[in-house]
Structures are given as C-alpha cells and as structure tokens.
Design a protein around this nucleic acid. Structure first.
Lengths: 229, 229
DNA sequence: TTACTTAGTGTAGAAAATACACACTATATT
DNA sequence: AATATAGTGTGTATTTTCTACACTAAGTAA
C-alpha cells in the first residue's frame, strides 16, 4: 500500500501492566532487561505493534508471547508519549492492563527474548522501573481501583471457584482498605452475579467456606451498568 | 538523535471530539473535508502529532489551531488503530475530548487549511462521518456520560455565570434523561462548588433566575474525588 | 472433649435518593 | 390596570442504601 501521508519517525508500542493475585498478594509482572538502555533494570513487559494487527490484537499477542495466556480481560487505558520518554527516539506507547489469577494450574511461559528473567513482584515492594514505567504502573493501579468499584472485574483475579472471603480480600488489596465482612457479602450477593455452589473449600484446617462461581450471563448483562463500592 | 529502534511506517495522529453547548443543544465540531480520501465528507478535526511535543501539548496545539481556544479541559480517552481505518496507510489516532461553551463573547477562529468549512452540528442529527469517526465520537459521548456523573465537568460547557436551570439542562442533554428540578438543585448545591451571585439573569421575559459561578478552589479539591449522579 | 480458627448471619440508626405540587415574579399583551 | 405567560424556587414524607457492630456455627487438631 502506498504511503501518501506525511511521515514521522515514531514508533508505536504497547506496554502491559499485568496484575496477578496468588491468593495472598497483589503482584505485577516485570521483566529484568538484558539490553541497553536500562540494562539490568526492571521494566513492564511490552512490545512494538505489528503493521497488520489491531491494537487489541496486538495487546493480546504480546500478552500471549510474554505469558502464554489467552482470553484474559484486558483493556487499553492510556497513551504515554512524552518526547523524552525513550532515550533512543520517539516512542509512543499504549498501556493495557490485565487481571490474572496466579498459581495453581498452569504456570506462565517464561519470557526469554529480551529479558534476563520475568517475575511476579508484589506491588508493595516494587523496584525502580525503567523508562517512565512507574508512571504507567501508577496510572494503571489508579484505573483498576476506579474500575473495581464500578464493574465486576475482580473475578478475573480469582480461580473459577472461590470463597467470599477470597473475593473480599481482592477488593481490600486493590482498594487499599479494610471492608466490613457482613456489608461486603450483602452487597456483592445483591448484584446477583454470584452462584453459590454445593461444594466447600478443601484442605483447610478449619471450617471450610462455601465456594462460589460467577454467573457469566448475568455478569454480561451487568457489564456496562454501574455498580458501586 | 539516532534512531536505533526498529522502524515501522506508522503515523500517529490526534482527533478531537469537541462538545459544545450553545444554551440549547449539545453540538460537536466537524469539518467538511476538501481532500481525498473522503472528500466532501464530514470528519472530526484532527492532526498529526509533532515530533517534539507531548501528547497533551499536541492536543492543545491542535485544538488551538482549529478553534483558537486555549485553557480548555481536555482529555485523552482512547486510541484507535485498526489497520484498515485509514485507506492510505497505518494511522493510529488518539482521541481527545474537550468541553466548550459556544456563542456569546468570542467566536471561534475558522478552520481553513484542510477543510471546506467547519461547523458545530447538533449531536441529534449528525451526518455520516469519514473514516471510523463515528466510532470515535460514540466512544467519546459514552465517556463524557460516565464522567459527568462522577466529576464536575459540566461547567466547562457553560458561560462563567449561569443559572441552575442551564446547568440542569446540560446534565439532561448529556445523560439523555430528565432530572427532577428540586432534587437536582439540592444535590448540585450540596457539592459546594457553586457560588451564588447577587446578579440575576437579564433579557428574559419572565422571572429572572439567579446567576451562579463555580468556585475553582473548591472545584480543584473535589476533582479526583467521586461524586455521583 | 476441648481449644482453636474461620464461616456465616441480622438489625437498628443514619444518610442519601426519590417522588411529588404549588406559590412567586418579571415581563408582554390587551 | 388587569391579565396571561413562562420559568423560578422551595419542603416534606417515603423508600432505599449505607454503616456500624458481635455472636454462634462448623470443622480441624490436639
């Protein structure tokens, strides 16, 4: 296809803030860079957008390449493009976030191409990040804080079957504050997206909690509507 | 500066959805294109991002060039980048919206460079738009609907001094539904961002309404906090 | 059997949201 | 001067939602 438009030397990338929950802590996926600039620094995983893919496709591809995960709820949230943000030229990057449940079944594929290692690090103790990635992460956290209050996205962080206490725990970690157990349960149940199962939690050395699953059909109806926390 | 990064022939632009309110209707600014592709079609005003400007600076510059306006509340809300969205190559565009008060004092500067004409058209009767601009507009409207519920941005659409009825009118237009006058006033006053003036409306052939101004200091404090409609 | 740990539940009071109707006032018209 | 008109401005009762708060039930481990 002929390029008629004016040309500017800009590169367009996508960076992902992958929030993961292992049952205890909220973490994000970081890679340790193996190349300059910012060699040996931790950075958000990201990549260049391909010529023939849509932005969402590209984000999904990048997530897949970096983690082996598919079908994850993922959303574009902000574009960062300060002229000085990348020392080697103009790079405009589009930030996506995803919510992922960690541990248990399938392990994540390692990331090797441009990183020494990849690791899930708890958000309570993040290292200094390369480029403007701290800013990107901050904005991402802010975004999901806002979003979890209004839309039922917390389930993405949990396994298919979960207890109400686990769900509450996720809300508390994301929002950064304690919630009242009874009020939390009342409200979350009132949304009508939870399905109580006959099963109980297993392997705990105390009274086992009832497991819940979330009802995708009702969830789909609710989505777009506003709920509030 | 040496370009080390891989190079892709992509162009990065910004398109603006400028919402305007003339006291009666909600409108957006559109231009009638004078060049192919989509010659003679209506389109959102937009432009290419300059090499040495930040995204927000670029948006502000574009808004200024197109309208002569400065100091307008403006926000990035989504990036559109389907490979086929521009017939002449890969163009990724970042959408911004702005809220503008129309009429009265200063008229907008005409837009001449790449358009036959520019016009404020009511959102209730929009023509077919070039490229994927309908999609961009739709998402923008959705965005401000959400936002006006939670943050005090409606003032941007009104003149410095306004009546509560005018303010309510804006809310009703954006949200697309009628609001109760008494409840609306109670609530909007309770936010504490309005300052009642001694002045009254002029030139009306009925009882003149009290004019209000909004208090920028309190507004600044409230900003970021959540309010709800 | 007892001690321990977490699950699970209800209610009362406060605050916020909603529904609802009429008198007032400035102007224009006769 | 009287009247019609059109939008301003206000209060209360009801319902709904939010908040604060503490004990019993169930299962496990010793």
């Amino acid at each position: 296809m002929e390029q008629i438009l004016p040309h500017l030397d800009s590169v367009f990338s996508i960076d992902c803030v992958l929030f993961g929950f292992d049952g205890k802590e909220l973490k994000i996926l970081l890679i340790e860079r193996n190349e300059e600039p910012f060699k040996d620094w931790w950075a958000l995983p990201g990549n260049i957008v391909g010529a023939d893919e849509s932005l969402d496709q590209s984000a999904a591809r990048i997530l897949y390449e970096l983690t082996g995960l598919r079908g994850i709820y993922m959303e574009q949230y902000y574009a960062f493009g300060d002229p000085g943000r990348h020392p080697q030229g103009r790079v405009i990057t589009l930030a996506y976030y995803a919510l992922i449940r960690l541990g248990g079944d399938k392990d994540l594929r390692p990331i090797s191409t441009y990183a020494k290692q990849a690791n899930w690090l708890p958000i309570t103790a993040l290292p200094k990040l390369a480029f403007d990635h701290q800013k990107i992460y901050d904005k991402g956290l802010e975004k999901i804080k806002r979003r979890i209050k209004h839309q039922p996205i917390a389930f993405e962080l949990l396994p298919e079957k979960f207890t109400l206490t686990q769900l509450q725990h996720v809300y508390e970690l994301v929002l950064g504050k304690k919630l009242d157990k009874r009020n939390f349960r009342k409200k979350i149940v009132s949304f009508g997206v939870l399905k109580e199962l006959d099963e109980k939690q297993k392997g705990v050395s105390y009274r086992a909690a009832t497991l819940y699953r979330f009802d995708k059909r009702k969830y789909a109806k609710l989505f777009g509507k506003e709920i509030s926390f």
